[in-house]
Design a protein around this nucleic acid. Sequence first.
DNA 1: CAGTATCCAAAGGGATACTG
DNA 2: CAGTATCCCTTTGGATACTG
Lengths: 110, 110
Amino acid sequence: MSNRKGDIDKETILALRDGIELLSGKWKFCILHNLQTHGKMRFKDLQEMALGISPKILSKELQELEENLLITRTVNSTRPVTVSYALTSYAKETEEVVNALIQFGLKLIF
Amino acid sequence: MSNRKGDIDKETILALRDGIELLSGKWKFCILHNLQTHGKMRFKDLQEMALGISPKILSKELQELEENLLITRTVNSTRPVTVSYALTSYAKETEEVVNALIQFGLKLIF
DNA sequence: CAGTATCCAAAGGGATACTG
DNA sequence: CAGTATCCCTTTGGATACTG
């Protein structure tokens, strides 16, 4: 309660909205969580982890995460070609958000 | 990394998705943050805090938060009638999520 | 395997005016 | 003041089929 009532902390609100924006999308938290716990994952692994995500959506969310420097995309010279996704060091910042959300979700039930 | 690759922790994923669901909506985090920092707030205060939210949306999100027992709605016997919103004790669980998100958002810029 | 292309339904959210 | 009602547009996300 560092602010008086009506004295709105705009920077905090903007930071909040920025954070939300980068993590918006139905599957982003799941993707981040899975990469946190499993390390590198391929497209297909990610598709199976979250039951029922269509390839189009997964592709889109991965691209957004990559654009925002939260994950890397690596093409492996195998046959057939495989692609690995992994968190950037920068994405460490998201771990607390993901974990807090998981803790919150767990407390909803029990 | 307690799980082997491919051994998906469904409960964690479901908790994550439950948490996300309760907090989904463009303004919920802002509402929660403002109630955290300012305590009780009236409808109009909340409307001003987040520049540009329409009354319909604010009303909807407040109802959803109330349904999920994260906030209380109190009608004050004033003239004209005013209504106060405040966090429930249960909503303490959301503070860490909100704060983690703010920290993440702040690190995006600086 | 790792996507892209196309099509489509539903949800989300805003503007505005109105009401008790 | 605290909403609700109406209208409308945009975004989101899913199903499916196809490609290198």
